[in-house]
Amino acid sequence: MMHDPNRHPDDERLSALAEGDPEATADRALIAHVASCDRCRRTVDELAALRTALSALPDVTPPRPLRLLPPAPEPGRGRTSLLRGLFAPTLAAGVLLAVAGGVGSFGSLLSGMAASGAAPAEVAQPATDQGAVSGGGQPAPSGYDAYDGGRNLATDGGAKHGQTPPSAPVNVVVWPVVLGAGLVLVAGALVLRYAVLPRAG
């Protein structure tokens, strides 16, 4: 890196000087040589002018039109995600109905077998539990509907059990229907999620 005043420095040093590299501008011997040597001063000046010209090179118009955006999400995609969003609430509603229906069916079966007396109290108990369980786990609006329906039916059933045996035939019909509807919803949700949607996506 020493500069013999009679010898030209390496051209790469002149290039560093031309761009104002602090390490080169702090090199006193280099500066002194360039100040006294026409050849090197011309090189530095030309390299500096070259840099200026390079930094002003114009932009270039692409030879063909380019796509500015990736394709917008298709409407089909939107429907798919809507269906995907329905999966959890439908499954939850189905499970709640099935559990309520199952418990109800079992209860009315018991009350049908028992003529009267102690049976109503036993039946009322699971129906209330069911109301508490579904009240705790209602995640979405349609789960709400199922919860309300389940509880109304359950309290209706409990009240009727508490009153008179003649209501028993109605319960025998209603609870299995609720159970069946719940199972259909669960099955529907599962088919939608694992059979229909994967192909749509």
């Binding site: 090179l57 932009d59 270039v60 692409p62 030879p63 063909r64 380019l66 796509r67 500015l68």
Partner: peptide
């Protein structure tokens, strides 16, 4: 886009490859 294409064209030395690179960049 012409700033990006100019850079790609000067780096790649090829108009078609440069257009592809610019498209990828977007």
């Amino acid at each position: 886009q012409s700033a990006c294409y100019g850079l790609a064209w000067r780096l790649l030395n090829d108009a078609e490859m440069a257009a592809d690179a610019t498209q990828d960049a977007f």
